[in-house]
Design a protein around this nucleic acid. Sequence first.
DNA 1: AATAGACACAACCGCGAAATA
DNA 2: TTATTTCGCGGTTGTGTCTAT
Length: 400
Amino acid sequence: MGMEAPQPEQAAGESVEQGAAAGGGRLKKGPWTSDEDQLLVAHVRRHGEGSWNAVRRETGLLRCGKSCRLRWANHLRPNLKRGPFSPEEERLILRLHGLIGNKWARISAHLPGRTDNEIKNYWNTRRKRRNRAGLALYPPEVEREVALVRAGKLRPIVDADGNASSLQAPLLLDAAADQFAWPAAPPFHPAFNNVAPPQPFQFTGHNPQALLAAQAPYHHHDEVSAGLDYANKQYTAALGMAPLVPPAAQELPSNQSPADAGGPFEMLVLEQDQRLPGAALLRVTSMPELVYHENDYSATWPSGLSGGSGSRSEGDVTSHYGGKRDCLFGADGVKPAKRTAASLVVAEEEVSGLFGGEELVAVWPDKSPATIMKDDFNLQMEMQQLMSPVPLSADEHGLN
DNA sequence: AATAGACACAACCGCGAAATA
DNA sequence: TTATTTCGCGGTTGTGTCTAT
């Protein structure tokens, strides 16, 4: 915390200069004192927000209107949320910034209690850090989302209603909208280009899990991916709903490990009641270790996990630590630590470690459990990302 | 222990849009 | 309609703290 302590009268860094406004008084600059804050708060209580230039006239506060407005907006107004951004907030910032750029006020409108200045500072710090580390600014799923929006495949609804929406509300993509159309061959994933919709396929129910069950058996990882994807497409198209919506992410300070309380990737873990009736789609006992690489990300798997081609050698685990990492979303979930370039590597590895040492198993009817491949994981992530804006009702969550 | 660099945060500045006289 | 004022946004800078060397 840099300048939080209220200073006595003429604190270091303060200055007084001739005011240009009417009255000709000397205007103070620099950090605000607690006395000044009290004057400003009292004024706003009496007159409400606005008329910032009147503050000086009516209170004698030697601050220009601009400075008063800023002080109120960023520090004094009620309901300001303090502390580091939660992983959900960070994720939201990335998504919003990916779509609308440096529109801090608009972005902050979607994060209750957060100021544009706060978000701007967060982004600039992140940008510098990642530039220095040679990392991309966005995680791949955000890049993909943005690409889909720009390609007209998804409809952004940012600011569509002009109101700040909560983290739980639909934010960027309106999957239920008429404009929502799944691309026949979504970009960035070769699996979509090669796999025809499974046949025969009949959409008869309103339960996405039943749809998914209808796609089984698909045990090759690409086929699994395609099956999952196709089922979700059908479900979305037919019902305008989103299957397999993740459980609500638990908000926690960004300096806490998502592994502790559920972080950005926690959404990929299917709850017990989300499993396929009679045929579990995924039995996720834990998360794979996840590391992004440029335009790709790979998962490494605990040694000894059966599943043929899904198994990964220990070399994967070791090599990715030394390799170039890109779009490591979670890295910013370990925020407030102040790190040098050297410790940044440690920070990135913290995130990799969040998912380590656990297993991910796909279970299909009449099939032996098998590890899910990274592409499946990839697709699951993409699907969840694309579906996540549409929350399920409680009934829909029941799935049975 | 001293120092440099990174970081977080607060605040200022310039500009343009909106509101008002 | 025009000039002036007010307001808000985004960019930038300044400063204290922390960490690694």
